[in-house]
Amino acid sequence: MTLFYGVTQVADLCEIERIQKVAEKLPNFQSYSIVMKEAADWEGPVGVVTDLFEDRYFNDGEVDLYLCGPPPMVDAVKGWLDDRDMSRSTVHYEKFSAS
């Protein structure tokens, strides 16, 4: 299981400690985070969540994906999959926006 966690700014990162605890308990769990806006207190990657993707994480399309985020992010991930002909993947998603 792999978690790709993308946020706009460092302050938006939440539950990082909880994610780390899960990773310690589940040897096949990997987590990657990315922040869209550069910040002095962030040493990780800067960009959008699809910047974290590599084909090797997606098992040649034999994968189930669960997406939750704003419509542009969900659409970008679906577009990334379409560009790689991963039509065998199953995508479950929830789009949300600020109220």
Rank of each mutant, 00 (worst) to 15 (best):
F29H: 05
V48R: 10
G69R: 08
D51Q: 08
Q9N: 09
Y93N: 07
Y93S: 07
T90N: 14
Y32K: 11
M1L: 10
R84K: 07
A98K: 11
V77D: 00
F53A: 04
I16V: 14
K95I: 02
K25F: 05
A39C: 08
S89P: 07
S89E: 06
E17M: 06
P27C: 07
L3M: 11
F58G: 01
E94M: 06
P27F: 05
A76C: 00
D85W: 09
P71Q: 02
L81P: 03
K37S: 08
G47R: 07
V7Q: 10
G61W: 03
E38F: 14
L3H: 10
S97F: 10
T90C: 12
D55K: 15
A76M: 05
E38H: 13
W80H: 06
V7S: 03
R88F: 06
E17G: 13
L3F: 11
V10H: 09
E54N: 12
W80I: 02
V49I: 15
M86Q: 05
V49Y: 00
L81F: 12
D60K: 15
P45D: 13
S89G: 11
V46A: 04
D51E: 12
R18C: 11
R88C: 09
F58D: 01
K25M: 12
V46S: 06
L67M: 06
C14P: 00
F96E: 13
D12Y: 12
V91P: 04
L13A: 03
L26W: 09
D82L: 07
D64R: 15
K21R: 09
Y57V: 07
E17P: 02
V10C: 06
A11W: 04
D75C: 02
S31K: 02
L52I: 02
F96V: 07
P72R: 05
I16M: 13
